[in-house]
Amino acid sequence: MPDLGLDILFKGNNFMRLLEGLFVAFKISMISVAISIPLGLVVGTLMTLNNKILKAVFNIYVNIVRIMPQLVLLYIVYFGASRLLDINVSGEVAAVIVFTFWGTAEMGDLVRGAMISIPKHQYESAESLGLVKSQVFAYVIIPQMVRRLIPLSINLITRMIKTTSLVLMIGVVEVLKVAQQIIEANRVSSPNGAFGVYLVVFILYFLVCWSISLFAKYLEKKWR
């Protein structure tokens, strides 16, 4: 077996530090997801309304998020805001703001897509059964929508987790940064450390994203 330099992970607190880094990444993405989903539901619903001004505003919003690389958004919120508006936020808060801004737009777009994909006759037949508008949504439309949304939003959530690797650029020490620190601190004693440590980082990201997608599969089955 080739020397992967895995031994450096067991020096001192290195493995614990890696897990702490993973927790930082996980925390940032989960807080952002928790805020983005309800906001996305609201934005998505507003997008389906036939209001020209609302449509234009959300169109611009969604397109800005699509066009701007996340790194640029992170720089704008972390450095730009303190430079121009004198608002100083920590790296973690800046990350949550950017990820929520991004997540809300994408989630909104997904919700809009899911809503218009529900055929008109579903609304009409529900109403003809005597349900009022709020009941139509609560018992007929939303349950169907949620089922359609699960695979799409899992895709978004796992992408968010992976994109947390960018927050090291605004001084947040997350799993990838810890990995680089461990590799560099042992550059002389184990020059092959990069392979082993990055392999472990890959496995950690995989475990997190995979367990989320397993959970989603379980939900899909349960709600079928």
């Binding site: 001192g12 607190n13 530090r17 680089q180 620190q181 560099e184 601190a185």
Partner: peptide, 17 residues
């Protein structure tokens, strides 16, 4: 720097060195 040994790096106990 937290990853430029030997000028600025973090050791196995999480201390800057």
């Amino acid at each position: 720097f937290s990853d430029k040994s030997p000028f600025g790096y973090v050791d196995e106990n999480g201390e800057y060195q």
